[in-house]
Structure formats: structure tokens, C-alpha cells
Nucleic acid binder design. Sequence first.
DNA 1: TATGAATGAGGATTCATTCAT
DNA 2: AATGAATGAATCCTCATTCAT
Lengths: 200, 200, 200, 200
Amino acid sequence: MPKTKTRIQKKNEATILAAGLEVFSQYGFRGSTLDMIAEVAGLSKPNLLYYFPSKDAIYKTLLAQLLENWMKPVYAIDAGGDPVAEILKYAKLKLRMSQDFPRESRLFANEIIQGAPQIGEVLHGELRRAIVDLAVVVNGWVATGRVRPVDPYHLVFSIWSLTQHYADFDVQVRAVMGGTDPMIGAEQHLEDMLRQLLTV
Amino acid sequence: MPKTKTRIQKKNEATILAAGLEVFSQYGFRGSTLDMIAEVAGLSKPNLLYYFPSKDAIYKTLLAQLLENWMKPVYAIDAGGDPVAEILKYAKLKLRMSQDFPRESRLFANEIIQGAPQIGEVLHGELRRAIVDLAVVVNGWVATGRVRPVDPYHLVFSIWSLTQHYADFDVQVRAVMGGTDPMIGAEQHLEDMLRQLLTV
Amino acid sequence: MPKTKTRIQKKNEATILAAGLEVFSQYGFRGSTLDMIAEVAGLSKPNLLYYFPSKDAIYKTLLAQLLENWMKPVYAIDAGGDPVAEILKYAKLKLRMSQDFPRESRLFANEIIQGAPQIGEVLHGELRRAIVDLAVVVNGWVATGRVRPVDPYHLVFSIWSLTQHYADFDVQVRAVMGGTDPMIGAEQHLEDMLRQLLTV
Amino acid sequence: MPKTKTRIQKKNEATILAAGLEVFSQYGFRGSTLDMIAEVAGLSKPNLLYYFPSKDAIYKTLLAQLLENWMKPVYAIDAGGDPVAEILKYAKLKLRMSQDFPRESRLFANEIIQGAPQIGEVLHGELRRAIVDLAVVVNGWVATGRVRPVDPYHLVFSIWSLTQHYADFDVQVRAVMGGTDPMIGAEQHLEDMLRQLLTV
DNA sequence: TATGAATGAGGATTCATTCAT
DNA sequence: AATGAATGAATCCTCATTCAT
């Protein structure tokens, strides 16, 4: 019999994942406790473990979901489109994701900083393949003189690091900028930087 | 009489701090245990606490040391020097620090991601002041047409995020780049990017 | 919705408090361990902490309960009654409490000897007020010649010290008296002493 | 070679015992730490253990010294003297000891409350013998009508408990009496009480 | 004689997980 | 589907004592 999930089941799983994201993204895996997650979820601790077999399972489910969304934008780059426009589209999408899903970003950052124990394989597999493919495209653009000569890998790192910085280092960004909203100038700067870097 | 530290004392404190850095930078404060640190330090757990009153004290000492080194480069920027050269000098220094002290960088990243519970004040105080001062300098350069118009804050974030990315996201960087040494192209790219962004 | 306690909850809390009283009254707060209390209670150590948040909480709960019962007898003294009879009634009540609740008495004694870190405020507040009020009554009796001139405070100390002596110094009392039951002559002596002291 | 103690040895042993008394009397045996004692003594912890083999040894030495002084007054009672005067002399001596050596009193109280693990034997031996002898004397006085009929044991307990109360329950006594010095009325009351109780 | 260094044996408390209902 | 009850395995920290000098 195929396990069809009831409405309540779906709702609670979603609630737990949301709570898990909230907590894990701030305190990391080991720094988070089921009590915290249960508190945020508004459920009892044993009830959490009724829906997920373990703390680990919640964390892994979150990471899996995250990776899916994390990879999507790369595939949206159109090798046939205008180079600068395509890169900018990608970069802005990344920036918006950092704005809209800062907790996901921090969850990811925590996982990577700790050596990617859970998602190491994905990094070496799917992610690497996607970026290698992208590098071929970019190198093609460079070879045909459509963009300035640029290392595709470091280009990607620039985009990743800066966009995620606004989410992951939010506290520092806000501390440094005082009351100013960081996001106001962020996109402008990102676009300017990439245009200068890429436009021939 | 000023308590002069024994040779053994100095050695062991250094050993413990090194071990603490190793462990805290990877697992964060809550994810690290005194057992791990003792293991790495090659000392017994109570002996750790003979030199430092608590786990917290080790962590705070590390952060304090870190902050000191972290702030230095900013102050080395010479308002009277060549704008692009000064910014480049700073950026390259930062990059080298990430290369040479990746654990310090990750320790810092962990602290910030978790909301900077320990160093929040420094961020709002000394760090903010330093960057505000730097912004004045950069804005001066912009106003006199010596560099392209850039937002000083986002310029700084670009430098910070990219340079630290190589340390904090090392696993991902290496996964994506396969066998290639990330550092070979990193400085080149950093310089290119900043020159394009800043040169009028 | 008021948290109504389960039957099990009530039972276990009572069990723990009884065990805590047993242990704390003999070894004092610092000399007692959760292991001892768990052993006596027949519960696991973490289970103790499931019902009470800390060792301290068990101790404080016990002291709070104790103080309530400890204060009651004072309030039962009727200013309008026969002076000697009222004092005797109070003294005998105290004596019976020492007999029936020797552990409570020792718990109290331990707390006081160590400087009353927990209940210092109650001593300066409620207890002092009660005894000051009592002193007024006794002084009234003295002034109207209904009892011999006595210092109300030292009268109270006499009653407290002697009655509690049988509980707190039980070992010594029994050692000195050999096989004789201390309580047989105790009440007799107490009554005789107070009558001689008070009767005009 | 007979171990003759050097001057420094004597001095340090005395210092340690004084510090031990200070600490043990307040926190009890298990509640006291060598660190506390070392702190009070102004000596290093290992140095303490150079003079005394263990924490236990310090405690036992203190108790032994204490018992010696504690027993003396009883022997000073003169069976041939005036009954009331002799009892009063004894009681006042006890009171003065409580005033002058409150820490000794509390140390003793702590030991007894905890079941007299160290000095149980002395209580059953020397102390019991002394009080039994005293009882014979008092009973003689009673038989010959020189004092009112009193139970010698409970008489002794009255004296012990009240006099020690001022030392052991000092905090409570002072709390109840407010600013008044407890000792001013104490002796007066003690004398009055005993005279009333004993005088035919 | 004195003390800096070191540690094994606790001791309070936390936490993921299991059990019973 | 939900939760009160329970616990073994940590985890931070304390402390009497030992060791080396």
C-alpha cells in the first residue's frame, strides 16, 4: 500500500522543517537541540520524532530540499543568450535568494564550513558537473571575445560569496552600515561590478 | 608583583589555543567539546581547565586575538596613496590572511553566522568606525574622480566576502575546481575584478 | 488552562522531596548529591531533573514547604488566652514538631548554621515580624503582672533551642542518655521549666 | 630522632587549622574545599597537604582539639559547692564559650547534625560518662532538697541548647532581634531561667 | 619548605531517543 | 496522532590528591 500522507501529516512535517531551518541555520547542527525545534514548531519533542526518525533526519531533509533549490539557478543560464545579461540574471537571482531565504543560506554555510559532512558528495558530483558545464560556456564566450577574459570558476565564487555574504554575515553587514538597508545598494553594486568585469 | 608566566604555562596555553582554534573553527562553539580540544591538544581535560577557567574562556580568548589581527589591515590603508593600489594592497592582504589563517577565518564566520553573540559590540563599535572612516576616504577618491563611482560599503563587502570565501567555503571551492589549486587564479581574479571596478 | 498535575507527577514529586529531605537534612546542601537523592528516591538521576529543574530547586522547594509549617505555630498563640497556657501550648507544639519532623528540623538547622543563604530574607521579614508581634503580647503580660518579667526574645530562643535540640542533636542526646528514650522526660522538663520561669 | 616541630611548622599548622575552622564551621565537611581553606590560610593547596595528609586530617584534628575544650567545663563542676551557683557557673561558662568560639560551636553542631560520624565514640564514651557522673551529683542535690526536682539530663540539654543557640543560630537570632545585641540579655535570661528552675 | 602542573573520580546538567499509554 | 515519563550517554566543571621540581 502506497503511503499517502494525510493533510495533518503534511502540515506537521512542514512545520517541523520550518522550525528546524530556523534553529539549525542559527546554531548549526550540534548547537541545535530538539527542544529548541519543538519549541519553535509548537509541537512536543516526541511528536517531532514521530514524523522524523531522528534529529539527523530533519537536518538531512532540510539539506536535500535546500540543494534542490540551490542548484536550479545555474541550469537557467542560457548558453545562447547575451553573456553579460545571462550572468547578471544569474547573479541577481542568487542575490534575491539570499534576501528571501537567508536561513537556507546560513544552513548551507554552516554545513560547508564544517566540511560538508552531509553534502560532500553532491558538491563533488552534481554541483561540480554543473559548474564545469558553465565554465565551458563562459570560456566559449571568452574565446569568441563576447566577454572580457575571466576565470569562470573565480567568477562564480565572486557571485556566490558576495550574494551569500548579505545573508550569512547579515549581522556584520548591518553593524557596519548602521541604519542603512544593505539591500538598497547591493544589487546596484553587484551589477556594476559584473558589468565592469565582463563587458569588453 | 606581576604574574610572569612560566615557560610551560606559555607553551600549554598556546597549545590549548591552537587546539581550540582547530576545533572551534570547524564545529562552532556549541558543537565543540572540551574532550575534542583536549584530544587535539594532547592534554587531559582537567588540565585544560587548569589553564583556562572554562570552555567559554578559551573561545573568547581566541576571538579576542582574532579580532586584533582582523582589524589591522584596515588601518594600513593610506588615504594619501594611490587609490587603486591601496585598495588592492588591502584586498591582497586579506586574501593572504585567508590563505594563511583559514581556521581563524572560519572561527570568525561561525561567530558571525550565529549572530555574533560574543563580538557583536566590536562590530558595532571599532569595526563600524574603521569602515566609516574608510568610506570617507573612498568617497573622497570618488568625488575627485580618482576612482570610478562605487559604494564604499559594498566594495568592502566584495573584498571581505570573496577573500574569506576561499577559507570558509574551502571544501566547496575545491570540490568545484577538482584538482586545481584555487589559490593560483584567486589573486589574479581579485586584482582584475577590483581594477575593472575602480579604474577610471 | 491551569496545568493540572498527573497522579504520577504528584507521586514522584513527593517521592523526590521526601528523598531530598532525607539526604539534605543529613548532609546539608553541598554535602548532598543528586546521586544520593536518586538512590533514596528509587529514581534515575535524570528523572529527578525531569521533575525539578535542578538540585537547587529541590532544596528550595523543601525549604519553602518547611518555612510554611515552621511559622504556623507562632500565629496560633492567642493574645487573649491564659499567658502560661498559651506559651506552653506553643512550646509543646514545637516539641512535637521536632519529634515528628526531625529531618525538617535538621534541614532548617543546616540552613541557618550556614548563614541562611536561601531563607535569610524570610528571617528578616516574616519571622522577625511574627516574633516582634509576639514580643508585644508577652511584654503586655509582663506589664500587667500576668507573667514574671522575662525577655520575650530570649524566652522564644529558649523554646526554639531546646525543642529543636532533641531533633538536631539527636545523636548526642541518645548517646548521653544511653538507652532511655529522650522524649519521655522532655515534655515534662519543658513544661516545668517554662512554668517556673513564667508563673508569678 | 624525635620529630621536633620547627617554629614555621607550628605557625603554619596553626594557620591551617584556623582557616579550616573558619571554613568547615560554615560549610560543613563536604561543603568545604581545600581551595577555600588554602585561600583563607594564605597558603597554596599543596602546601596544606604538606602539613596535613588530607582534608580529612585537618577536620579530624580540629574536632579533636575542640572536644578537649568542650569537655573541660563539665569537670569544673564542684559537687561540694553550692548547687545553683555551680550550675550557673557552668552555664555561664558555656555561654561565654559560645560567644568567644562560635565557629567551634558550629563545627560541633555540623558534626552532630550529620550523625557524628567522627566523634560518635567520644559521645558514647567520655561525654556520656561525664554527664552520668554529673547526673549523680545533681540527683544527690535533688534528693537532699538542695535544688528543685529536675531531670539532670534535660537540665544539661537546656543549658547546652540555649547557649549554643546563640552561636549556631546566630543569623536567626540577629534577624529576629533586629539591631539589638543578643548577648546583652542572654546571660541575664539564662541565669533567671536556671534560678527559677533550680531554687527551692 | 613550597608550589606549579597534572589528573582520576566524581557531580550537576543536557539531550537524543525510547517507552507506555 | 500525540505526549508524559524515563534514561544512557555525554558534557562542562570541581576537587582532593599526586607528581615534579
